[in-house]
């Protein structure tokens, strides 16, 4: 297992370099001269050519691109994601400050989505073609088709405005978290649920499940201990894809509910054309994606010995 972990870690290096290269190249291709963009914000009047030249030399902007990229990657290893045009603060500090807000909605939403998806997915598979099965299929279709912001508004109108159960926006209490978490969870449940169902259906038809039933194990024990454990493998696999859905979700949910998380941070930066922040966001989010996919891979290997033995 240790060898497998090491191999997987090593395999991340080229991908991570690719992400950093993409972030570097994109920022270089973006319209506008970086020296001009930065100095314009520092002085009240437009900078002179001499000032621009001095700034370029001081920051090595005239060096060959390869040297600049090397410096960029070295900086990344030291935790330097650049400095925000607007605030003059290191991008990493500002990002790290925003992460807890995003996590306080993303983690409960993920837990909720998983709970709903697995519960309904298993029940739909066990009671195939029941009312419940058809109902959940319809619900999943709606969840796939409704844009996050429409879902958010529907929930706001029903739960906050009409029923008056929850506050519309703001922060501070757990009640404020309910609507964002619910929006995020419901928007991502469908694919997980459908996968649990189809995976469960397949496993329930396997010989060992029939054998366990034939041996007289109670049916709930067969479903939970024999079938579900194996059915969850593919569900773990798509966790990475679900995470991608969460990036979309959190950006929009944070915007609607005015939460100062990573999502609103990057949207503000886009409007301000604060390139270092966007660049930092690409590297940061890319790294998070890689790590989550790594955890998913390791989890799979831990659950299924065939995977780690195959790779070794």
């Amino acid at each position: 297992m240790t060898r497998y972990v090491l191999r997987r870690l090593l395999a991340l290096v080229p991908t991570w370099l690719g992400i950093s290269l993409a972030a570097f190249v994109l920022a270089g291709l973006a319209p506008g001269d970086p020296a001009q963009l930065i100095l314009d914000r520092q002085f009240d009047e437009p900078p002179t050519e001499a000032q621009l030249q001095e700034f370029r030399e001081a920051n090595g902007l005239d060096d060959p691109k390869a040297v600049q990229y090397g410096r960029f990657v070295l900086g990344l290893f030291q935790g330097q994601l650049g400095t925000s045009f607007r605030s003059g603060e290191p991008v990493l500090n500002e990002l790290v400050e925003r992460v807890p807000t995003t996590l306080t909605i993303a983690l409960p939403a993920f837990a909720l989505a998983l709970t709903i998806a697995v519960t309904i997915g298993v029940l739909s598979a066990v009671r195939r073609n029941s009312f419940m099965d058809h109902g959940s299929r319809l619900a999943a279709l709606m969840s796939d088709s409704v844009p996050t912001f429409v879902l958010a508004y529907a929930l706001i109108i029903v739960l906050a405005v009409q029923a008056g159960l929850l506050p519309v926006a703001g922060r501070g209490t757990w009640q404020h978290l309910v609507l964002p978490v619910l929006t995020l969870a419901l928007g991502t449940t469908a694919s997980l649920m459908r996968l649990t169902r189809s995976s469960m259906l397949e496993i329930l038809g396997e010989d060992y499940v029939r054998t366990a039933r034939a041996m007289g194990f109670p049916s709930w024990s067969v479903i939970l201990r024999h079938a579900l454990r194996n059915a969850l493998l593919p569900v773990v696999t798509v966790a990475g894809i679900v995470l991608a859905g969460f990036v979309t979700g959190t950006v929009i949910v944070e915007t609607i509910f005015a939460l100062p998380g990573v999502g609103t941070f990057v949207v503000d930066a886009i409007f301000a054309r604060d390139y270092p922040v966007i660049q930092g966001f690409v590297v940061f989010t890319g790294t998070v994606f890689l790590l989550v996919n790594l955890v998913v891979d390791l989890l799979q290997a831990a659950l299924d010995p065939r995977i780690r033995l195959d790779a070794a």
Partner: peptide
């Protein structure tokens, strides 16, 4: 298949408008 498309679209628009 695992590329996050919305994220990439966001980044492209961030840099190129």
């Amino acid at each position: 298949q695992v590329l996050p498309r919305f994220f990439m679209a966001l980044v492209v628009i961030a840099f190129f408008g």
